[in-house]
Amino acid sequence: MGLILPYREFSPGTQPNYLHSPYVSSLRRSPTKPLVHIPQTLSEITGPSWGAKDVVAGACDLTNRHSGSPIGPRIVVSGSVMDEDGRPLTNTLVEMWQANAAGRYLHRSDQNSAPLDPNFTGEGHTLTDSQGRYRFVTIRPGEYPWGNHHNAWRPAHIHFSLFGPAFATRLVTQMYFPGDPLLAFDPIFNCTADEEARNRLISRFDWETTLPRESLGYHFDIVLRGRNATPMEDADRHQE
């Protein structure tokens, strides 16, 4: 069978370490032994394929899933999904979830005393189009307190989950909003050493997708691991 064209390693500093002590939950949940480096095999460069059958039509609009409209400023969040060479990733599943405008999640573990919104679930998903683009209609999530340290507050954010073409390209991340004063104090946002990489988690305000009398637009591009130019078999043998 053919050679393996592996996915690139992450650029140094652009991904969080597992242990980040300001984020208290990482202390007892991060591995203490080094990860074992392995060559990519078919198991890593393949992965689940998702298609139209896995997507509910209209699940990209979080504002019309109930009888009434959710409370909060309506926003459009859109962008492109691509690999590190800028190639669009078409037909790829994008999942997202978020708190409501008051900063409360529809989840039994959420201890925040802010109210639930009967018209807001906070879940969306979609497939990227033929140019790798996605678009969600939602409301701006609220900031919320959490128990990490004294007076800890999470900046407003939306969770994104993507598979891409392979097990190796899986990504779960969080999108933030420009100008949020809480970003500087958030141990989760700040867990990545590389400042430029960190700041790419902040969406930008977008007049292009802002709709008159309806919603503000935010733009958020997502980049998944790209591939090496040289096949794995040779590269890996030299390593040994």
Binding site: R8, F10, S11, T14, Q15, P16, Y23, S25, M82, D83, E84, D85, G86, E95, M96, W97, A99, Y105, L106, H107, S109, D110, T121, G122, E123, G124, H125, H159, S161, L171, V172, T173, Q174, I188, F189, C191, T192, D194, A197, R198, R200, L201, I222, V223, L224, R225, G226
Partner: peptide, 17 residues
């Protein structure tokens, strides 16, 4: 040309999504 987007934790409420 680009660098892969950085990971963030799934947090405690991932079941919603």
């Amino acid at each position: 040309k680009l660098r892969a987007t950085t990971w963030q934790t799934v947090g405690p409420f991932f079941s919603i999504g």
